[in-house]
Simulated scan of single mutants.
Amino acid sequence: MTTAATAVAVAATGGWFAWRRPGGATPAAAGVPTTTAKVTKIDLSNSTLVSGALGYRGDYTIVPRGEGGTLTALPDPGKVINRNEPVYEVDNKPVRLFYADRPAFRPFAAGMTAGPDVRALEENLKALGYLSTADATFSSATTTAIKRWQRATGQTINGRIDPGEVIFQPGPIRINTVTGKVGSDLHPGEPLLTATSTTAVVTITVPAGQTYLVHAGDTVTVTLPDQRKVTGKVLYLSPVADQAQQDNGRDGQVTVPGIVTLDDPQVGSNLDRAPVQVAITAATVTGVLAVPVTALVALAGGGYGVYKRNGAQRTLLGVTTGLFSDTMVEVRGDGLQEGDDVEVPSS
């Protein structure tokens, strides 16, 4: 809720009405049950609560290459596959995962021209400990590194890698769907698997009327289904709104989708598609004086005040309000300090 909106709500429903000017002692109001609360020095945050769902960043389609064969092994949905691990097998030969931002499109062998695909291959061989340096040129050191890799993984040692012997993806993958079947023929060029990254994210749904409260970079607190709270940031908010369709065919609420990244991207890795609540923090202040929102009273001349209590003495002090949270409000005013008692409704 914004500061202005909260102030209006307090004046209309939740606060006190003091149609007088601040500064003097006033008698206790008759017939209004009251108690007191302390003026505290705290950190306050202004948050917007939206719904979301856990998922994974990125969508990848694995399209096999090569000359075909028989599918002899396939991964199960949900399996995580890392560099150099088999993704699937053709004729009992594992097809292994290498990391790269683009797919391999030609055989790797001595005499090939330089290119970014060569650099990607060499960076993988280096990461696996088979090559000391990586560049974009296929050299004799590259051939030697391939042979070392082939020996270590039980392959035919020939110093070349043909299409279909490895697949390149941007990083570790988590298998989503499997369209092939063990024992069937492999059809190069046809999708075999779909996968995502292993980085958990939250897809949020923001009501269109609240998008002005949400910005890329805002910090968030995500409440998981087991009530754990984890932190993250708003990565992206779509410029395009969606309108849900209700079961009766009528148009539903207009919302805007967005993505939240988690500070610990593995924290929700076993909770795919689980619903979550996301509190998006738009503003934060630290070490400010604050009172319960219900301590505010509307002043006759405009603005707000609080009743400071000192035993039986009751003094109305004008205050300037700052950031509002769900239950507390930042206040500044002469004669008010940490530890003072202010009057609030008792219920």
Results as ranks from 00 to 15, higher is better:
residue 184 S to I: 02
residue 185 D to T: 15
residue 185 D to L: 12
residue 186 L to R: 08
residue 189 G to H: 11
residue 189 G to K: 14
residue 190 E to G: 10
residue 192 L to G: 07
residue 193 L to M: 12
residue 195 A to Q: 07
residue 195 A to F: 05
residue 195 A to T: 09
residue 196 T to C: 05
residue 197 S to C: 07
residue 198 T to E: 09
residue 200 A to Q: 10
residue 200 A to T: 15
residue 200 A to P: 12
residue 201 V to R: 15
residue 202 V to E: 04
residue 203 T to P: 01
residue 203 T to C: 00
residue 204 I to L: 13
residue 209 G to T: 06
residue 210 Q to E: 12
residue 211 T to R: 14
residue 212 Y to H: 11
residue 213 L to N: 10
residue 213 L to W: 02
residue 214 V to F: 04
residue 215 H to L: 05
residue 216 A to R: 08
residue 218 D to T: 03
residue 218 D to A: 10
residue 219 T to I: 03
residue 219 T to F: 03
residue 219 T to P: 00
residue 224 L to G: 02
residue 224 L to W: 06
residue 225 P to H: 06
residue 225 P to S: 05
residue 226 D to Y: 06
residue 226 D to A: 03
residue 227 Q to L: 12
residue 227 Q to K: 15
residue 228 R to T: 07
residue 228 R to C: 04
residue 229 K to L: 04
residue 229 K to G: 00
residue 230 V to R: 03
residue 231 T to P: 01
residue 231 T to H: 09
residue 232 G to N: 04
residue 232 G to E: 09
residue 233 K to E: 13
residue 233 K to N: 11
residue 233 K to T: 13
residue 233 K to R: 14
residue 234 V to F: 04
residue 234 V to P: 06
residue 235 L to F: 13
residue 236 Y to W: 15
residue 237 L to C: 04
residue 239 P to W: 13
residue 239 P to R: 14
residue 240 V to E: 15
residue 243 Q to S: 14
residue 243 Q to H: 02
residue 244 A to Q: 11
residue 244 A to S: 12
residue 247 D to F: 06
residue 247 D to S: 09
residue 248 N to C: 01
residue 249 G to Y: 01
residue 250 R to Y: 02
residue 250 R to F: 04
residue 250 R to H: 04
residue 251 D to E: 12
residue 251 D to R: 09
residue 252 G to R: 02
residue 253 Q to C: 02
residue 253 Q to D: 12
residue 257 P to A: 02
residue 257 P to S: 07
residue 257 P to C: 02
residue 258 G to N: 04
residue 259 I to L: 11
residue 260 V to T: 10
residue 261 T to P: 00
residue 261 T to R: 12
residue 263 D to C: 03
residue 264 D to V: 08
residue 266 Q to T: 09
residue 268 G to P: 02
residue 268 G to D: 07
residue 268 G to Y: 06
residue 271 L to N: 01
residue 271 L to W: 03
residue 271 L to Q: 08
